[in-house]
Design a protein around this nucleic acid. Structure first.
Length: 782
DNA sequence: CGTAATGAAATTTTT
DNA sequence: TTTCATTACG
């Protein structure tokens, strides 16, 4: 007990010792929030509260797992329930499925599954959706669900044709989900919120069962989550939420900042604890971050402070191009590592959109630095995994039409589009599921005998699977693989991609085995599937790996790094052009940057490029308006000599319409200088007098500014370091890898960006596969 | 029925 | 530039 409080500040202690009644912990970045929450749980247990009455809700599995293990250290052997909102709801729904019109073996559709289902509804309804993508309609439905607007309540407000389309599609989509006994991610929350709202006795029971509820990242809750939490805290309002309005960056996913801003109104008598001391960053980093966020209106003002060192100044670099931006950053990283000051894992580079990682990847590879990008293709999203899981899903829930459609012709068994369409028509006509329709293939209209037999054969195969679908999940998976012969074409194939697939399937089998071991004896297929659907790959992101980390600003939340680079601080990127109009969205962009800044422990570097290649087009950029909000006297600015615009302004290039902060330093905005004389006058750019007035003789003539720096820029432009292309590799070639050393190419497959190689390495005495474009492999020169 | 070719669109994405 | 989805062919 005494131990629990040791080393805590007064504020932290106040939060930890709070037992009954509502509690709001406003936790600034790096304020030891997780520590406080876990200590508080341990304290509650210490006060004699049964762990079973304590429920902790997070947004990510990672956060839940981390808390779980930390609570385990503080209160060994007293497990409390810590899970994500979605998983908690999934469990609850299993228990109360009939109350919301589901079966207990219901299926959870992931985003792509629900999009499939939505597309089918759109097709079936014959809605003219030429002006909207299914994705847009899906987003609109999702938004409605996040606001707890159910299908029957949805009324198209004035405001364009999209709402009226949604009004037609949403109810049908929803009833389709229901008849397939399926839910999408949003439904998990909506169903539970509705369940609590419409069933007072159930609500009361759950309220009593979950007497102490803790919610992490409360600023990111949407209305559905808010209602769930509310429903669980009526009779026992021992609700503790932690959050930081300044770190709310998921408004676009329905998060409602008012949930935290109005918490004190919602729960009278709340105790508010502010954790404002930061243990993560230097004074300078914190002060820059604080200055930035002070520009937001919708927030709870707070005073961030730290006892940490003053630290190095925050640096701001202006680069000529995205390439030199990347090169400079990577060179700096490489140098610090070479000098032994840092390790690769000390560095992180954040950007607004994924596309911005490209130049960095190139530079990192050029320098031979190991890196990892957070956000690869998620394991459970891979085709082969989804294919095989679909069999399990269909076994678990035979009404799952999405699973059926995935499975019916995978692997190819000659059941094509038209056949499937006929089955669908039949199913709609007779109000049955697709599997039932397939079962009656002989009766399906227009279905040739031969095809009907093929379909019947599929159903027979499925029934055989179904019959043996008891026992360990790994075993079931084994049956699926042998019955479907899924692996056969892959084994035959030489392609590296297919080999990769085989490896992934093995991984799935391993995951199944581990699941079986964890649930010795009572392993349930449904639970395995739930886990598979609600798991995300970023959960597996490993901080221990010694690599430079690249990720979006969003992905950086909750993490910290000694050295942080935030790149591309340009108008249109951050703030993103899509959020330019709404003031609320602008504030969210500012928060996003704030989150990025406050990840840094020792060094923070900001940068932009004056010219950036965007979707194949070279464009002049405008510095982010957020830069103007930073304390210039605290920043250390370096400006790379850039290529000064040639000739007079060409109106077209100012089309971006952004207020140009460059204008403040006199230079006229101009067309991007093309260093390749051949290319310059082409494209959509009008060949105006400016171009004729300055004939493009040599690149040197286009360069102004300090001679030496200009020369560098020129050198860069004229003699780009030769890239290693995937096509530079040949069979039998000797190559070098920074980690594995010298190796020989044993096999090659694929082409272009997908070209992969199998390399035998002498040093490790084994073979490894690489996607060449992403690998650090280089031809070894003797 | 399956594949290759063309064309439009392209934030962020805890589950 | 890249990625997808739809369409046109074999």
């Amino acid at each position: 007990m005494r131990d629990l409080l040791r080393g805590l500040t007064l504020a932290q202690r106040e939060a930890v010792e709070h037992v009954d009644g509502p509690l709001l912990i406003l936790a600034g970045p790096g304020s030891g929030k997780t520590r406080v929450v876990t200590h508080r749980i341990a304290h509650l247990i210490g006060q004699g509260i049964p762990p079973a009455q304590i429920l902790g809700l997070t947004f990510t599995n990672k956060a839940a797992d981390e808390m779980r293990s930390r609570v385990e250290l503080l209160a060994p052997g007293r497990p409390v329930r810590l899970s994500t909102f979605h998983r908690f709801c999934a469990r609850l729904l299993r228990e109360y499925a009939p109350l919301v019109g589901l079966r207990e073996n219901y299926t959870i559709y992931d985003t792509s599954d629900s999009l499939q289902a939505l597309k089918r509804t759109i097709d079936d309804l014959g809605v003219d959706a030429t002006h909207f993508t299914p994705g847009q309609i899906a987003a609109a439905i999702s938004t409605a669900k996040n606001k707890l607007v159910t299908a029957d309540q949805y009324v198209p407000r004035a405001g364009g044709p999209l709402p009226s389309i949604v009004a037609r599609v949403y109810p049908v989509y929803q009833s389709r989900l229901l008849s397939a006994s399926a839910v999408d991610f949003d439904d998990l929350l909506v169903h539970v919120a509705v369940l609590l709202r419409d069933n007072p006795e159930v609500r009361a029971e759950l309220d009593a069962r979950n007497r102490y509820v803790l919610v992490d990242e409360y600023q990111d809750t949407n209305l559905a989550q808010y209602m769930i939490v509310r429903g669980l805290s009526v009779d026992y309002p021992n609700l503790a939420v932690t959050g930081d309005p300044d770190q709310s960056i998921y408004g676009w996913r329905g998060a409602n900042l008012n949930n935290i801003l109005d918490f004190e109104k919602d729960y009278p008598g709340v105790r508010v604890v502010r954790l404002e001391q930061n243990y993560r960053s230097t004074k300078r980093i914190l002060s820059v971050a604080a200055r930035l966020i002070a520009n937001n209106r919708r927030r709870k003002a707070k005073d961030l402070f730290t006892d940490n060192a003053e630290g190095a100044p925050v640096r701001f670099h202006q680069h000529a191009s995205e390439k030199s931006e990347a090169d400079t950053i990577v060179a700096g990283i490489a140098e610090a590592i070479r000098a032994g000051r840092r390790r690769p894992r000390d560095f992180a580079v954040f950007y607004r959109t994924n596309a911005l990682s490209r130049a960095l990847e190139f530079a990192l590879r050029e320098h031979g630095l190991p890196y990892q990008i957070v956000n690869g293709v998620e394991f459970y999203q891979r085709k082969e995994i989804k294919d095989i899981l679909a069999y399990l899903l269909l076994i678990n829930n035979p009404r799952d039409d999405v699973a059926f459609l995935r499975v019916i012709n995978t692997p190819h068994r000659g059941i094509g589009r038209t056949t499937v369409q006929r089955l669908m028509r039949h199913a709609t006509q007779y109000g049955t599921t697709l599997l039932e329709a397939a079962r009656e293939s002989g009766l399906v209209e227009d279905l040739p005998k031969k095809t009907a037999v093929t379909v019947a054969r599929f159903v027979a195969m499925f029934d055989r699977l179904n019959a043996v679908a008891t026992g360990p999940v790994e075993e079931i998976l084994g049956h699926v693989l042998s019955e479907t012969k899924y692996r056969e074409p892959l084994v035959q194939s030489e392609s590296e991609e297919d080999q990769e697939r085989l490896a992934n399937i093995e991984e799935l089998l391993t995951a199944a085995r581990q699941f079986d071991e964890r649930h010795a004896g009572d392993a349930h297929l449904a639970e395995f599937l739930e886990e598979a659907c609600l798991v995300n790959d970023t959960d597996a992101w490993d901080t221990e790996i010694d690599r430079v980390t690249l990720m979006t600003l969003h992905a950086s939340k909750g993490l910290e790094f000694p050295v942080v680079h935030v790149i591309a601080l340009e108008e249109g990127l951050i703030p993103h052009e899509r959020s330019r109009n709404q003031p609320d969205e602008l504030e969210e962009e500012r928060r996003l940057l704030f989150v990025g800044f406050t990840r840094a422990q020792e060094e923070l570097h900001l940068s932009l490029a004056r010219y950036r290649e965007f979707r194949g087009q070279r464009k002049m950029t405008v510095p982010s308006q957020f830069l103007l909000e930073l304390p210039t006297d605290e920043l250390e600015t370096t400006t790379e000599a850039w290529v000064e615009p040639v000739g007079a302004a060409l109106a077209e290039s100012t089309e971006s319409g952004y207020p140009s902060a460059w204008d403040m330093d006199d230079s006229a905005v101009d067309a991007s200088p093309e260093l390749d004389a051949d290319r310059a006058p082409r494209g959509r750019r009008p060949v105006g007098p400016a171009w004729q007035a300055t004939p493009l003789k040599t690149a040197a003539e286009m360069l102004l500014g300090p001679a030496t720096a200009a020369a560098d820029v020129m050198a860069e432009a004229l003699a780009p370091v030769p890239e290693i292309s995937p096509d530079d590799f040949a069979l039998g070639m000797l190559v070098r890898h920074p980690e594995y050393g010298l190796g020989k190419i044993m096999a090659l497959s694929g082409s272009g960006p997908r070209r992969t190689a199998t390399i035998a390495f002498a040093a490790i005495g084994g073979q490894k596969k690489f996607i060449l474009r992403q690998s650090a492999l280089r031809p070894a020169r003797r």
